[in-house]
Design a protein around this nucleic acid. Structure first.
Length: 415
RNA sequence: CGGAGCGUGGUGUAACGGCUAACAUUCUCGGUUUGGGACCGAGCGACUCCGGGUUCGAAUCCCGGCGCUCCGACCA
């Protein structure tokens, strides 16, 4: 992409209606635009990051036999009444609205009921399960208080996966697998080191569930975590009881306390929704059984915001390679043909390049580059050409090296 | 939903109840400059969030609304 064609601009100052680091940096660098509290537009750079994150998740989920689909954001009232979740006393963050013909509907806050209802068309035999289906969908939560930039929004993109299993045993196996898959996703997006599989109370479906908590001061949760054993307990649930229930000895752990963000959660739903909506199959003996379910969520903007909270310095964002909007930021200070040639040959080799072809002073280009945070910066200038090529520098290091255009291609391809 | 704070050009700030609402930045034009948001000059850009009230006079004081941020509660 040519930076001269990118319509967004950077700002020196953050708008005063943002105080979280993620929203300040993402706004200043031109990744997001706030529409209202908790509601953000993702601009071209921001969308690229979203798509990179989605790609990582997709690859992991497709690997274990899950299939992507896309459900609707408008949902009918009656399937929610069957599970009892239409009631404001049960779920208090609905956005509900009547149609012109009077029919009441809800804006999606989750999709258990919807997908369970869909699956009634496709699951009728024990041979039809397990089914693993997921989507990336806009979710609407009528939060009393949106906060922390893109970490808690009223409208946000969520990856939600649901498993439809034969029985508890089959579901449990998948659940264990998802623990690994989630960890792998968070590792690939760059926050593996800070992210802990965390035990917490499980809500209405089961006594306990697991969530993935990433340590950062921007978080609204508090976890007790063991760095070596790589496990944590949500502080709300940190008790003798939980140790007993999991058969663990408190003395075997060295727990520390930290603020954290819940970047993902995995729930066992059991037969709650299959029973409520009548999703059953016939087993080998012709007997009717309820499908056994689980749900697995990751808030995509929240994950993106968490990454920014962790990886930044006083100059701007420092994207992990895997989720950066571009692989390389090519900065042309020479205003000659070489930059265009390198730009094109990098692209031919499958490298995503942002070429800063604007006629600006070097200082401004460097400042923008640091703010936007693309992991590799390549400068082509009179100075670098005199020294025999281009200057390559990582965003997170001060050192740079000169290499020839040919060597550059090889160097980038190997990363 | 309880509490606190804040709403002034696109952005960030200033202005005792009293001149034409100021400064910086962005933007436009001209000049100079080209390895860390450089410099000089000239411009454009505001019903001071909305509605009432007090006053000779309100960005400023009072009431109501709306919006935003933060703390707490909530987060299936």
């Amino acid at each position: 992409m040519l930076q001269s064609q990118l319509f967004t601009k950077t700002r020196k100052e953050a708008p005063k209606d943002e105080s979280s680091k993620n929203a300040q940096l993402l706004t200043r660098a031109g990744f997001i635009h706030k529409e209202m509290a908790g509601v953000y537009t993702f601009l071209p750079l921001g969308l690229r990051v979203i798509e990179r994150i989605k790609d990582i998740i997709r690859e992991e989920l497709n690997n274990i036999g899950a299939h992507e689909m896309k459900m609707t954001a408008l949902q009918q009232k009656d399937i929610w009444e069957k599970s009892g979740r239409w009631d404001d006393e049960v779920v208090d963050d609905w956005f509900k609205t009547p149609l012109k013909n009077g029919t009441e509907l809800g804006l999606a806050f989750t999709h258990e009921e919807v997908l369970t209802n869909i699956m009634k068309n496709y699951i009728s035999s024990y041979k039809d399960v397990p089914v693993y289906a997921y989507q990336f969908q806009t979710k609407f939560r009528n939060e009393l208080r949106a906060k922390s930039g893109i970490l808690r929004g009223r409208e946000f993109l969520m990856k939600d996966l649901y498993d439809f299993s034969l029985d508890k045993e089959e579901h449990d196996k998948f659940y264990e697998k998802m623990k690994e898959v989630y960890m792998s996703i968070f590792t690939k997006t760059g926050i593996g080191e800070q992210t802990y599989l965390t035990m917490s109370s499980g809500g209405s479906f089961s006594k306990y569930s697991f969530e993935f908590q990433t340590i950062t001061d921007a978080g609204e949760d508090i976890i007790m975590y063991d760095e070596n054993k790589k496990i944590a307990i949500n502080k709300d649930d940190y008790s003798e009881e939980i140790f007993d229930d999991f058969g663990l000895k408190k003395t075997e752990f060295n727990f520390k306390e930290a603020k954290s963000v819940e970047v993902g959660d995995i729930y066992t739903l059991g037969e709650k929704y299959s029973k409520a909506l009548g999703l059953t199959y016939k087993d080998e003996n012709g007997e009717e059984k309820n499908v056994y379910m689980g749900s697995y969520g990751i808030g995509i903007p929240r994950l993106m915001g968490t990454i920014v909270e962790i990886f930044s310095d006083e100059k701007g964002i420092i994207w992990p390679k895997s989720v950066a909007p571009f692989d390389v930021h090519l900065i042309d200070l020479a205003q000659q043909q070489q930059a265009k040639q390198i730009y094109e040959s990098l692209q031919e080799n499958g490298v995503d390049v942002l070429l800063d072809d604007r006629q600006l002073r070097p200082g401004e280009k460097f400042a923008d580059s640091d703010l936007i945070g693309i992991p590799i910066r390549i400068v082509i200038s009179k100075k670098s050409l005199d020294q025999g090529g281009v200057e390559v520098k990582n965003r997170n290091s001060e050192e740079s090296q000169i290499m020839s255009p040919q060597a550059l291609i090889e160097f980038i391809k190997e990363l």
